[in-house]
Design a protein around this nucleic acid. Structure first.
Length: 473
RNA sequence: UCCUGAGUAGCUCAAUGGCAGAGCAUUCGGCUGUUAACCGAAGGGUUGUAGGUUCGAGUCCUACCUCAGGAGCCA
């Protein structure tokens, strides 16, 4: 680089001009562009990093800027005596989260958390954050409300970025399991003419003229149709619930992956659900062990335990009820579980806490479950359904069932639940033309991410959470 | 919708009914191996809102607002 160019850059820094455009691309004699995650491949070589200033420590004539580039963080070292004055002056006092392009030599260093440091040789500021308006998210602790209000900036922090990477892996692994096992992805509509199950509160909107439309709360009914067309199908997309739930497990907008399989019974469904979850956990460990999982603070042994030898535990509703009865008698839960009722949140937490693998609870009383669930032929008061409860109190991550395949029974059920028959005519048609036993489940992605990452709240598992009290940013 | 709790500096939090404080951040200065670096100095406040009790209210009372956690409901 020419001396007069350097001089003008130095002048710009000295006169506190805030923006130094970096339109000048990394020139031919510069080092190859690397990412921090893969920087070990360039040990001893010069590389260029394009990212942001994450932190800056200083010891007089020695600067320690930490850079991040989305793949990780690395500390640079800038001794005043060893670099051009422009480089030192540019970095000295540079504001956090200013965007920078840095060139330096990669050096292994046992003192560095990642094992590598960068001996900075050159730096260009793409945009300098204004001194008077520093980056709002500090390295120190912050409150939930403040962080959520600044979610667009919070996602830059290493832990949040790591969570989003694990989320991406989970979504990829989930789809991959079905893609490689003969399933066809058939996504149902987001806008629906009526409530799928007639229970949940739905987001309502005008749909031209006098019609109303609702945001889907599940694609299940639609993929039952595509399952009878294509055999094995799944859907993967956002779903919406207008319930005023205020807990660490609820979002008003969340992502659900739902398989549906013709000729599959409940036993087959449970087997499939286990294979599906094992695949996801395996991929998460494969991709993030020792890195993102460590950064997030998840105990990896707990993930190892899930995929360890031995089937997932299975309990009937009756067995689970008996377990809760004992637990209440022993003073381990506060409220007794009434036989016939659905399990409450504390009940599920207790049941799942007994195992280090997800537990499958099946054959609930039909009365507390959805209208489309097939009765157990051995006990028609029970439904052929299964809830998969995640360990460590993360609650129900999967809910599924074998579906009613008889036209007459389904029609009766719809009427008994007070649902408008006309709206379900197409759904009834599926039982009129070549009906078969079929089963499927839905898994909430965010609960799965919270569980596998060991998070307190699902709001951190999605880039921009939609909750009862928040629709900004 | 119900129950519980919290709102004080940009952020995180202190403050027996008696002068509005600290750490971080910001600005200025110092430091050649720092790891949320550290040391010194400066600036920074309508204590969520409205009323009330009191000589005196951040603190006590009432209402409201906002947020959080939980219940219900669910993935």
């Amino acid at each position: 680089m020419l001396p007069d160019v350097m001089a003008s850059r130095l002048n710009a820094v000295m006169s506190s001009e805030v923006t130094i455009p970096v339109v000048e691309a990394v020139s031919a004699n510069e080092a190859p562009v690397s990412t921090i995650a893969t920087i070990g491949q360039h040990e001893g070589q010069r590389v260029t990093l394009r990212g942001w200033l994450y932190n800056l420590r200083s010891s007089g004539k020695l600067l320690f800027p930490t850079f991040r580039d989305g793949s990780g963080t690395i500390q640079g070292i800038v001794p005043k005596a060893a670099v051009p004055e422009i480089v030192f002056e540019t970095l000295k006092g540079l504001t956090l989260e200013s965007s920078v392009v840095v060139t330096g030599k990669v050096r292994a260093d046992s003192r560095a958390p990642s094992g590598y440091e960068l001996d900075v040789e050159d730096v260009t500021v793409t945009q300098r954050v204004d001194d008077a308006n520093p980056f709002p998210i500090q390295l120190k602790e912050a409150g939930v409300e403040f962080l959520m209000e600044h979610r667009h900036l919070w996602v830059r922090t290493p832990r949040q970025s790591a969570i989003l990477r694990v989320r991406a892996t989970i979504m990829r692994a989930a789809a991959e399991y079905f893609d490689t096992n003969g399933y066809t992805r058939t996504d149902p509509p987001i806008l629906t003419p009526n409530a799928c199950e007639g229970t949940s509160e739905l987001f309502e909107m005008d749909y031209f003229d006098d019609e109303k439309a609702y945001l889907t709360q599940s694609g299940q009914l639609y993929i039952e149709a595509t399952a009878l067309a294509l055999g094995k199908v799944y859907s993967f997309g956002p779903t919406f619930r207008a319930e005023k739930s205020k807990t660490r497990r609820h979002l008003t907008e969340f992502w659900m992956i739902e398989p549906e399989v013709a000729y599959m019974d409940l036993e087959g469904l449970m087997e499939m659900a286990e294979g599906f979850l094992r695949h996801i956990v395996t991929k998460v460990l494969e991709t993030h062990r020792g890195a993102d999982l460590k950064l997030i603070g998840k105990d990896e042994a707990k993930l190892e335990a899930i995929i360890a030898e031995g089937a997932f535990p299975k309990l009937t509703y009756d067995e689970a009820h008996a377990m809760l009865k004992d637990a209440y008698a022993a003073g381990k839960i506060e409220k007794p579980h009434e036989y016939g009722d659905d399990f409450g949140s504390p009940d599920e937490t207790y049941i799942s806490s007994q195992y280090d693998k997800p537990v499958m609870v099946h054959r609930y009383p039909a009365a507390v479950k959805a209208f489309y669930m097939q009765p157990d032929p051995k006990d028609p008061a029970k439904a052929l359904c299964v809830d998969v409860l995640a360990p460590e109190g993360y609650g129900e991550i999967i809910g599924g069932s074998q579906r009613v395949d008889s036209y007459d029974l389904l029609k009766k059920r719809i009427e008994a639940h007070g649902l408008p028959l006309a709206a379900f005519q197409w759904y009834l048609d599926l039982r009129k033309y070549g009906s078969v036993p079929h089963s499927g489940f839905g898994m909430g992605i965010e609960r799965c991410v919270a569980w596998l990452c060991g998070l307190e709240h699902v709001r951190e598992t999605i880039p921009f959470a939609r909750t009862l009290n928040r629709i900004y940013p």
